[in-house]
Structure formats: structure tokens, C-alpha cells
Design a protein around this nucleic acid. Structure first.
Lengths: 153, 153
DNA sequence: GCCAGATAGTTGCACATGAAACCATATAGG
DNA sequence: CCTATATGGTTTCATGTGCAACTATCTGGC
């Protein structure tokens, strides 16, 4: 019962995947407060709106690529958002399989209200970092992502 | 229909929560390959094993605190692991409500086999970073977490 | 032009998860 | 002691998600 076995012991506090997951989870949870409680959006719906706000017009496929969500998940989020009148969906004139998605006036208004709050919240989150650190952080994260992509193949 | 609306546009690629989530998701997915395909463990189960390997003996409550998982989720992971003979669970002598969890010989053997693989994988992941960068990364992440904790209250 | 894949998106199904109700045990106050 | 309350852990239930099957449309080869 004392200390019989530290054979391959590894310290989870210095294990990047664990730390990353914990942080992402906490950040996500805190951010969700903003759009969930006040606007009744779940994560998937928020992501769709954020991308449409960012890019103006996208198809489900493009959103799927950007958010790494399953296509069914995107599809369902879109249905709800359309039902709530926050986005419109119309078949692309070029290809009837594709549906161009856009924010409606209402959806746009919602985002115009929500985005500044989200930004302010993020600013507070990253307040402990200097601007340079923040850039380095994003840069390191980009390199890690690239490494994953390269590993994969 | 042209370019009517970039009023509060914000760039998701420089939005930390988004980037963090995407990276954590990819890392988690890649890591899961190691324990899922070869050892049939899901995320929750892996986390329980990792903590028991790390800390030797814990209660469900402690694991819950460490992993930020719901207690029901921990409970179910424990059931499966016990069923597979990877951990043992016995009521704590001090308090019958608590159950002390430990790896069995088999569970220990599995981790002795798995952990080095995980470590090697992590080493490859962080290869693009210098040792100092890696430390800075963890440090920045810690500061962000602290900020979240302080915000919350 | 027409058929054989490919591709965008939807739906059915099985499963994992979180919230809440629940059970068992512990502890504190009378 | 004995009751009231708190706490660790389990189970139930509703919900969200991923995978796979499906539908509708498109595209390339003949």
C-alpha cells in the first residue's frame, strides 16, 4: 500500500493531450454560457452561426470542413436554425444538391449582439498573456496541428 | 447581395476557443487510435486507467475531480473496467460509501504496455516545439486556466 | 443522351452522455 | 441513541451524436 509501483508512471499534468483537453473543455464550457443561456443555442448551432457570420454564405459541406462536425450534426443544427428563422437555406443555382446558407436579418441581428460579447469575453480570457505570447501560442498550436496532419499520412 | 455586411466580423482562425477546440479535438482523436483500436478502451475508460496508473489508488470522486467527467460517466467507465478485470474496487475501510479503485495485475500490465506508446506518440507530436517552447506552452495554458477559474467567481 | 459512380445532405438506429432521482452510508444536532 | 441532512455512487430518462443506409442530384465515359 505504500509506494510499490512507479514503473512507467507518467505525470498527467505535463501530458499535453490531457492539459489541452482540460483547457479546451473549460473554455468551451465558459463560452457556452454566453450563447446557451441567453440565446438558447447549443455548440453546433453556435458554430454554424459563427461561420455564417464570418463567411457570409456557405454550404453545409463547407461548414462541416471548417468545424470538423459530422454532416448529420451540421444538418440538424441547420434545421433548427432555419426553424428559428436565424438562417435561410436555398438550393444553389449551380448545383441543386448544395444548399447555400445565410443569416437572415434576425440571425444577423443576433450575431451583431452576441459577437461583441464573445469578443469581450475572449479578451478577458487572454488578458494574462501579452500580445506577443498570444501570437506565439497560436503559432505553436498551428505547428502542432500541422504535425498531426503530417503524422496521419 | 454583394458585400453588404462585415459589421462585427470576426476571424475564427484567430479566435482562441475555436482554435483550442479544433486542436484538442484532433489530438484527442489521434490519441484515441492508440487505446481504442488496440485495447478497446473509450476515452472515459482510458482516463480512469491513466489516473489510476498515475496515482495508484483513487476513489471515483477523485477521478471525477481530476478528469472533469460527470460522476455517472466515471461510474460507468469503472463498471466496464472492473468487468474486464483491469481494475478492482473495494469499499474503503474508513467510509463504506467510498470505493478505492486500483489497477489489477492485468490492468497494470496493460498500462505498462500502453503508456510507453502514448509517450512516444506525444514526443512525436511535440517534436516541432523546442523544450523551452513546450514549457512556455504549458505555462500559458496554466495561466489561461487560472484566469477562467478567477473569472468564474 | 445514358448509365455508373460520386457527392451533398437527410434519416434511422444504436450508443454515450448529463441531469436528476435514487440508494446506501456517514455525520451532526438534539 | 435517533432523526435530519449531507455525500459517494448508481440508475433512469431524455437528448445529442456518429455511423450507415438512403435519396436526390451531378459528372464522366461510352
Amino acid at each position: 500500500m505504500t509506494t510499490e509501483m512507479p514503473p512507467t508512471d507518467f505525470d498527467l499534468d505535463h501530458f499535453l493531450p490531457y492539459r489541452l483537453d482540460r483547457l479546451a473543455d473549460r473554455v468551451s464550457e465558459a463560452l457556452a454560457q454566453l450563447y446557451e443561456t441567453h440565446y438558447g443555442l447549443n455548440v453546433a448551432q453556435w458554430r454554424v452561426l459563427a461561420w455564417l457570420h464570418h463567411r457570409h454564405e456557405l454550404t453545409a459541406k463547407q461548414i462541416r470542413a471548417a468545424t470538423r462536425m459530422d454532416k448529420a450534426r451540421v444538418s440538424r443544427a441547420v434545421q433548427v436554425l432555419e426553424g428559428r428563422g436565424l438562417i435561410v437555406r436555398r438550393p444553389s443555382p449551380r448545383d441543386q444538391r448544395l444548399h447555400d446558407l445565410r443569416l437572415t436579418e434576425t440571425g444577423q441581428a443576433l450575431m451583431v449582439e452576441l459577437v461583441p460579447q464573445v469578443r469581450a469575453w475572449e479578451a478577458e480570457l487572454v488578458a494574462p498573456l501579452t500580445t506577443e505570447e498570444y501570437h506565439r501560442l497560436l503559432d505553436m498550436m498551428a505547428r502542432l496541428e500541422r504535425q498531426l496532419r503530417d503524422d496521419a499520412r
